[in-house]
Design a protein around this nucleic acid. Sequence first.
DNA 1: AGAATTAATTTTGTTTGTCAATTAAATGGC
DNA 2: GCCATTTAATTGACAAACAAAATTAATTCT
Lengths: 402, 402
Amino acid sequence: MAKEQRERSRRTILDAIRRAGRVARIDLARSTGISQATVTTITAELLHQGMICEVASADDQRDARRGRPRVDLALRGAAHLVAGVKVANRALSIVLMDFAGKIVGEYTERLPASRLAATGLARTLKQALERTLDASGLSFADLSAVGLGMAGVVDASRGFVYWSPSLTERNQPISAIVSAELGLPVFTDNDANLVAVAEMYFGPGAAYRDFIVVTIEAGVGMGIVLDGKLYRGTRGCGAEFGHTKVQLDGAKCRCGQRGCLEAYVADYALLREAESAGLVFPQADADKAIGPLLTAARDGNAKARHIVDHAGRIFAMGLANLINIFDPQLIILAGERMQFDHLFAEDVLADARRSIVQIDQPPPEILSHKWGDLMWAGGAATYAIDKVADMSLREIAAQNAA
Amino acid sequence: MAKEQRERSRRTILDAIRRAGRVARIDLARSTGISQATVTTITAELLHQGMICEVASADDQRDARRGRPRVDLALRGAAHLVAGVKVANRALSIVLMDFAGKIVGEYTERLPASRLAATGLARTLKQALERTLDASGLSFADLSAVGLGMAGVVDASRGFVYWSPSLTERNQPISAIVSAELGLPVFTDNDANLVAVAEMYFGPGAAYRDFIVVTIEAGVGMGIVLDGKLYRGTRGCGAEFGHTKVQLDGAKCRCGQRGCLEAYVADYALLREAESAGLVFPQADADKAIGPLLTAARDGNAKARHIVDHAGRIFAMGLANLINIFDPQLIILAGERMQFDHLFAEDVLADARRSIVQIDQPPPEILSHKWGDLMWAGGAATYAIDKVADMSLREIAAQNAA
DNA sequence: AGAATTAATTTTGTTTGTCAATTAAATGGC
DNA sequence: GCCATTTAATTGACAAACAAAATTAATTCT
């Protein structure tokens, strides 16, 4: 019971350092409410462990001050190196990230198929990871862990995938399978959850304790952060925003059910609508066919316009429902640059705000965070860092016990 | 920092006693992980404060045991008496509850109007409360606090009502207003949240850490319990399940918006549908008119049947969305006996289970808990007990500091 | 009656954290 | 250039909380 107190304090201080980026001990004491003496003790442990380092103070009011200059503490990037992997539709994205959250390498590779067997995925991943490491002159031995993000229903605590659009089989203990192939600890979670982790650690979510991340790519995903922690549900299949129903007996969804939000706003849904409306956009690459449709809508094609508007209205309805249910401080819409601008448009957000329960308080902030392709892999890497930090903290506890 | 540790431990032990009903110190130590020594210390404080008492052990394996007999501890009902008040459509329900959760008095009174001014409500409440106390030979001086539950959007932390169907004005500091009238501490929250508190303390929710309560009366409400704590959202207007949208440009709702779940499943919605379908059920009391409609549906009237079925399907869709978003361990459907059987029907629940993301794990349990009228007031009373327990624990902390 | 058993309390020691004093490292005034 | 002043960080003394072990308490079995 007393031990746990110390572990909590260590966590608190490490998190505070991460949030601040760099911060002097005295400010740590003030912001965490832990006494200066304890901050000294704990930071000494973290320094000794190599998780943090002292850096010259970036004290902007330094001129106006006398007295002993403060020494800032920061996460020590060299403490650990992790890889974050995102398994996308037909691609594998990898980033290498140091313990301070800096991306030190990246790599993307086409996958032979959109669905693979777990063992095949593990082998492909190993090769891709080798190339990624080679490019930076690094090797597996430099890695502390691998974070793995994939669409689908994942029980993160067990690293178990109930179902994923990227796998040919259901019910795969994916963390164990990939870990056996790589010889490294592997931590798997739903990809949208991992984006939420990244937003919480290094994105705009860092300033909030309760927010929701909605991701948009082929499907619609969600990550929920409540009280500063990722909420995953009890079986690992919560936060399935894309498969909440928005229409009784509605449009057919990839998941086999009807009326899912995803079946109205995903690009494949819009293309399906366009086709049945008689619109044709000849295009070599099916992945990009959404572009001409959006252009046509902007240019005043009534049919195209109607399809895009309808998607926006359904999306707004979904967002409003989230706000009505969670009343979060913030909603972050995370998606690829440009491709989903029609869903991030101000009139869609205004529509959402209009559809929530109205009280005399400002509605939650909604902001869109358009990251590139590597957002997903970055989320996976951040998750791995979080796990590695846990491991290091446990190591300190074990050393103190001995 | 060390003080807070003790406060946590005291809370843990008090909660464990409440959950168990009655429990020996040694089992407290085992279930909480706190050492026997500390349990002795803390329970001695709680005994001295009068919050708990020793009772003869109800040890069912007593015969098979030798040794010193265990002494059970239980909440001491006489420690505090609170009142729980539910402001309903045209009625005020009050229960008196002792600190152990036992209901020691109840009273219901018709309200002159379905909407009242806050000060008028406070005065009416005072008179009704006086009658309630009189009936048990008690007085205001015997009460420690009052819990107040009402429909609408409530910021519980401030006891502030943004909007309620029971009040004529918006933005009322209702706790302060009623407290000034009664001369007692008053704690206000949304009524569905309070039902969730009751389920967590004394209902089937006691065995779970993550569950959702859906309440059905005139409107549809929701209370969310995550990690053993009620989740209220950041502005106090979360959990508005009844006003999540289930249909774009849908049916008009009381709240002024369109397509709300409530506008499809509440009794007024069903009656509206029946009327526009040409069904007429002459009935003196408008509140009860739903009965004949349901009977007609059961008896094979096709129009009535269709209206009721449609409500069930919409409700199932809403439940499925909740499960897809939260993945809770349990959903409790709380409503008045009989009146909402059509929504609690097994085919509705089966429909909901079919509409969630399918994985090879059993879906969350869904159970209906048909309490009477007093469920609501009981929830408010339970909330008041929780607050009073907080106050008592703080008192112990203050005494120790002095 | 005494041994055995189980519960509860007390004693003792460790951990943790705070407070206050001290040391460290700078600036500013003379 | 030296010393007072200021601010940061560390150290030492002490108190609170908890756990482990010893002790006391209350019972059953033989």
